[in-house]
Simulated assay, not measured.
Amino acid sequence: MLLRLAVLAVGVAELLRPRAVVDFWMDLATADDDVSLRPWVYAAARIEGLVLVLWAVRRLRGD
């Protein structure tokens, strides 16, 4: 259940603020600050957030 709550929190964060979440993880993943992301990356993060939220809510209701 704790994993589902964590997934729900990450999903909500990605859904509401995809740029902040993606930029945070890209800063951790790369040592070079000269990384440019394509604009669709943020839209994909928002879609991923929606999928995570839907999955977590469905699993939490099933318990």
Rank of each mutant, 00 (worst) to 15 (best):
55 W>S: 13
61 R>N: 07
33 D>N: 12
5 L>F: 10
62 G>A: 14
37 L>N: 01
7 V>L: 15
61 R>G: 11
35 V>W: 03
48 E>N: 11
3 L>I: 13
31 A>Y: 14
58 R>K: 13
21 V>W: 02
51 V>I: 02
51 V>W: 00
34 D>L: 07
61 R>Q: 12
24 F>A: 00
48 E>Y: 06
61 R>P: 01
33 D>P: 14
6 A>S: 12
40 W>C: 08
27 D>H: 00
15 L>P: 03
1 M>C: 10
5 L>A: 05
42 Y>I: 07
53 V>T: 07
3 L>V: 15
36 S>P: 08
59 R>D: 07
3 L>K: 14
19 R>V: 02
17 R>H: 10
24 F>M: 00
62 G>W: 14
45 A>N: 02
43 A>S: 10
49 G>I: 01
31 A>V: 14
52 L>S: 07
46 R>S: 05
16 L>N: 03
6 A>D: 12
11 G>N: 05
3 L>E: 15
38 R>A: 09
17 R>K: 14
13 A>E: 04
12 V>I: 09
36 S>F: 05
2 L>G: 15
30 T>W: 13
26 M>L: 12
53 V>W: 03
21 V>G: 00
43 A>R: 11
32 D>R: 08
21 V>S: 03
43 A>E: 13
2 L>S: 15
20 A>M: 01
